Measured scan of single mutants.
Amino acid sequence: TTYKLILNGKTLKGETTTEAVDAETAERVFKEYAKKNGVDGEWTYDDATKTFTSTE
């Protein structure tokens, strides 16, 4: 399943996707990605669109 991440950081904005077996796995991948890029925001998830959003 393809999951999408929308980053709305103070210094980094953008989108990326990952293939994962479930939302929990995708969330771990995306949170590590955000951390590596210095984004520490509030997380939301929309199951209908398989989209995570992190907003600082």
Score class of each variant (00 low, 15 high):
residue 1 T to C: 13
residue 2 T to F: 09
residue 2 T to C: 14
residue 3 Y to W: 06
residue 3 Y to S: 02
residue 4 K to W: 11
residue 4 K to R: 13
residue 4 K to T: 14
residue 4 K to D: 02
residue 4 K to M: 07
residue 5 L to M: 04
residue 5 L to S: 01
residue 5 L to K: 01
residue 5 L to A: 03
residue 5 L to P: 02
residue 6 I to N: 03
residue 6 I to V: 11
residue 7 L to Q: 01
residue 7 L to Y: 12
residue 7 L to I: 13
residue 7 L to P: 00
residue 7 L to S: 02
residue 8 N to K: 12
residue 8 N to T: 08
residue 8 N to V: 13
residue 9 G to F: 15
residue 9 G to Y: 12
residue 10 K to T: 11
residue 10 K to N: 10
residue 10 K to F: 14
residue 10 K to G: 07
residue 11 T to W: 14
residue 11 T to N: 14
residue 11 T to G: 10
residue 11 T to F: 14
residue 11 T to A: 11
residue 13 K to F: 11
residue 14 G to S: 14
residue 14 G to Y: 15
residue 14 G to N: 11
residue 14 G to V: 15
residue 15 E to P: 03
residue 15 E to M: 13
residue 16 T to S: 09
residue 16 T to K: 09
residue 16 T to A: 12
residue 17 T to C: 12
residue 18 T to L: 14
residue 20 A to L: 02
residue 20 A to E: 04
residue 21 V to E: 12
residue 21 V to H: 12
residue 21 V to D: 12
residue 21 V to G: 10
residue 22 D to K: 03
residue 22 D to E: 04
residue 22 D to I: 03
residue 22 D to S: 08
residue 23 A to W: 15
residue 23 A to L: 11
residue 23 A to E: 07
residue 24 E to W: 10
residue 24 E to I: 12
residue 24 E to Y: 10
residue 24 E to T: 10
residue 24 E to V: 11
residue 24 E to S: 11
residue 25 T to C: 07
residue 25 T to L: 05
residue 26 A to E: 00
residue 27 E to I: 08
residue 27 E to C: 15
residue 27 E to T: 04
residue 28 R to C: 07
residue 28 R to V: 08
residue 28 R to P: 02
residue 29 V to D: 04
residue 30 F to C: 01
residue 30 F to Y: 01
residue 30 F to A: 02
residue 30 F to I: 00
residue 30 F to S: 00
residue 30 F to K: 00
residue 31 K to T: 04
residue 31 K to E: 03
residue 32 E to K: 07
residue 32 E to W: 07
residue 33 Y to E: 02
residue 34 A to H: 01
residue 34 A to S: 06
residue 34 A to E: 04
residue 34 A to M: 07
residue 34 A to N: 02
residue 34 A to D: 01
residue 35 K to Q: 11
residue 36 K to C: 11
residue 36 K to M: 13
residue 36 K to L: 14
residue 37 N to T: 08
residue 37 N to Y: 15
residue 38 G to N: 09
residue 38 G to K: 06
residue 38 G to M: 06
residue 39 V to R: 03
residue 40 D to F: 15
residue 40 D to K: 10
residue 40 D to G: 08
residue 41 G to C: 05
residue 41 G to P: 05
residue 42 E to C: 12
residue 42 E to L: 13
residue 42 E to P: 05
residue 43 W to L: 08
residue 43 W to E: 01
residue 44 T to C: 08
residue 44 T to F: 10
residue 45 Y to P: 00
residue 45 Y to G: 00
residue 46 D to V: 05
residue 46 D to W: 03
residue 47 D to A: 14
residue 47 D to W: 08
residue 48 A to C: 10
residue 49 T to I: 06
residue 49 T to K: 06
residue 49 T to H: 05
residue 49 T to C: 04
residue 50 K to N: 07
residue 50 K to S: 05
residue 50 K to A: 04
residue 50 K to T: 03
residue 50 K to R: 12
residue 51 T to V: 06
residue 51 T to E: 03
residue 51 T to K: 02
residue 51 T to W: 01
residue 52 F to N: 00
residue 52 F to S: 00
residue 52 F to I: 00
residue 52 F to H: 01
residue 52 F to L: 00
residue 54 S to P: 03
residue 54 S to H: 08
residue 54 S to K: 03
residue 55 T to I: 09
residue 55 T to L: 07
residue 55 T to A: 06
residue 55 T to G: 05
residue 56 E to T: 07
residue 56 E to L: 06
residue 56 E to Y: 09
